[in-house]
Design a protein around this nucleic acid. Sequence first.
DNA 1: TCTGGGGTCCTAGGACCC
DNA 2: TCTGGGGTCCTAGGACCC
Length: 447
Amino acid sequence: MRADPSILHVDLDAFFAAVEQRDKPSLRGKPVVVGGIGLRGVVSTASYEARKYGVRSAMSTAEARSRCPHAAYLWPRFEVYRATSQAVMAQMRALSPLVEPLSLDEAFVDLSAAGLHDLTVDDVQAIADDLKDAIKEASGGLTASVGAGTSKLIAKIASDLDKPDGVVVVPPGTEAEFLAPMQVTVIPGVGPATAQRLSMAGVRTVADLQLLDEDELIRQVGSAHGTSLHRLAVAADDRPVVSDRETKSVSIEDTFETDIIDRSLLTAISERMAHRVAERLRKAQLSGRTVTVKTRMHDFTTHTRSSTLAGPTDDPRVVARVARRLLDDSDISGGIRLLGVGVSSLADWIQDDLFTESEADEAAEAAVDLPEVPVRPRERDTGYHPGQDVTHPTYGAGWVWGAGRGRVTVRFETPETRGPIRTFALEDPELTKLKHPSADDSEEPAD
DNA sequence: TCTGGGGTCCTAGGACCC
DNA sequence: TCTGGGGTCCTAGGACCC
């Protein structure tokens, strides 16, 4: 807990929806819902107009549609949000070098790191007001809500109290009484499961929590969580603002419109995902030792299988083969609704001098003890197989999702965007087959 | 018409080593 | 022959956040 309210928490209001309204004037003043708008999508952000109808983040889009059928439903445009986010973060960095982004629309700022500001409550209020103006200017009209206090905890909670477009500065010394009447769920880290356990111990408000014995709390919620909660309840929080946090894992996952049972299709999808993950690793100059495959069953139970290599890799072929082996070990009977591939135990890509790139990859792969990988069987008479690359004059590059009964279904997508899915006749002359890397042994390293 | 996608952190058990 | 503890690494699952 610091002496001055030097920590700001800045939160852009209904960020994705606000960007869409900024860019499409016809949407201004109207309900806008951004998120997955397919069969199994959920809401990322609802504009304030849509919230009036009870639409909330994380709600299924199906439910949102029934609550607010006349809203505009939009896929997210992450590239646009990222660019806007950077412009906003730049305004914060102009205030202080110590800025910790939590997501595209949220960040902490430690004003004391600048050494320039007077930090009375009134000064901080003025700084926050000016920052909001600067953000609006830099972002093309977006509003932000700002909380300020002597810690991250207080700043974060404060920014939520006067949304949208508000500023709340909590005076030093008033933190514990500020928190006391609130529900325990205002404390970041207390979600439904923890709230339920606390409730069984008679704890519903922070005031209740302040009175609970630490050992009792640890019994209820575990050692790490209990210790930190016991301190946060009395606003004892000296966590620093950290401007550059290391990435710990990189992953891709996809929920399918309908459950998939076909193993060869899943293998093809896992291979795509492995390549996209490896590409993102390379762009970030990272490599990793642990490959994880995630599956979610029809009943929403979720399983992970992971395997750790002897050394880090960013080779798409290595990631793909380990992922494939893990998928082969996974139970997919009954079909799965989600598949994911991730890499963790990350290292900086710059390899140490002991290995060349290829030696390191060989060493990594040697440790995997891969079984013989049969070439994926072709669908007997369609001439296509899942995962095969194709191209089309209208839709561009795509890949085969499935084939049969005289039809072939193609998914047109790039590493960045998910494109349409289209079905063609097998003999459609506009659909051109391309060589698929994994279906061709010449690109595979020898086992 | 249930339940996204990208992450972080924690726990617990087993293997293995000292 | 019997009973140990601590530390680290790996794996699987779960809670939580935006």
